[in-house]
Amino acid sequence: MTIDVAHQGGAVPASSRRRRPGLLRRIVQNRNDYAYIAPALIVMALVIAYPIYYTVELSFFKTPANLAMDQKIFVGLDNYWTILTSKSFRDVTYNTLIWTIFSTFFAYVLGLGAALALNREFVGRGVLRAVLLVPYVISAVAASYVWKWLYHSDFGVIGALSVQFGFTDRPINFLDNIYTALPAIIVVNIWKEFSFAMIMLLAGLQTVPDQLLRAAQVDGANAWQRFWHVTMPHLKGVSMVTILLLVVTNLNSFIIPWIMTGGGPAGATDIWITQIYQLAFGRIRFGLASAYSVILFIVMMLLGYFYVKALTRGDEAKSE
């Protein structure tokens, strides 16, 4: 759509008055560029676009266990209605929000603390940095099994220590209790993710100009004021990206909850992804699972929009 800005009053640069060439024309003009990225676009269309299309299509069908996929029954928006009005959706969404918010918040805060500590010169900094990276590089599957045994309600090390030191009379029932299971796996998730935040923020800290910090010190700013008024504004961009990536990762988390509790006990750790998996492969309701996936996809796309926006903020500022 073109707008005749001349009629809206105000001075308009001459260059803006020129009509932009159409999309097709621009593609033809830049055909060589498009030719270079064509293979990547084709692969993306095959492995990303088609599955998305098929998932959306499937979300309008019922797929009972006794019918083959080509016999699926069209039900319109029934699957969406079923999901959005079910109590289990509210429970699972609540768990997902708790899981995502707490995991993201504490992973970020711990990561920031670790990054600030590692940004200072001290003996053994390299070793400590390597040690703190271990949770991030270790396999999530292996970590889940190790933590599962640490938490074990009968023979777990944590429970045994709590009894030995007199904190409790009997081992704490971490994973077999509906009130403690979700917090217990959130702790594991934070442990696994904080290193990522640490690395991102450590990189961000390298961009904080030393002169500014020194100037603030000369002006009488204390440590907190230097951190809050100098360091944090410089970390704003990288913090935004880190938090968005953590949120996206946590919304997509599967390995830790699935291996440690399978969504149990009694659904206490069931989050969107485990619910989708359970619906699709445990209960063979591919249509319902697809509708769930589409809902999650929309949420992720919104987050993706903000992520790209945060990522390109600097570019826009430069182009202005």
């Binding site: 599962k148 309600s153 029932n173 077999d176």
Partner: peptide, 14 residues
């Protein structure tokens, strides 16, 4: 076992 809710039979063996 308190861990019955997350146990399979494998966890009973040890």
């Amino acid at each position: 076992p308190a861990s019955a809710l997350t146990n399979t039979q494998n966890e009973n063996q040890n």
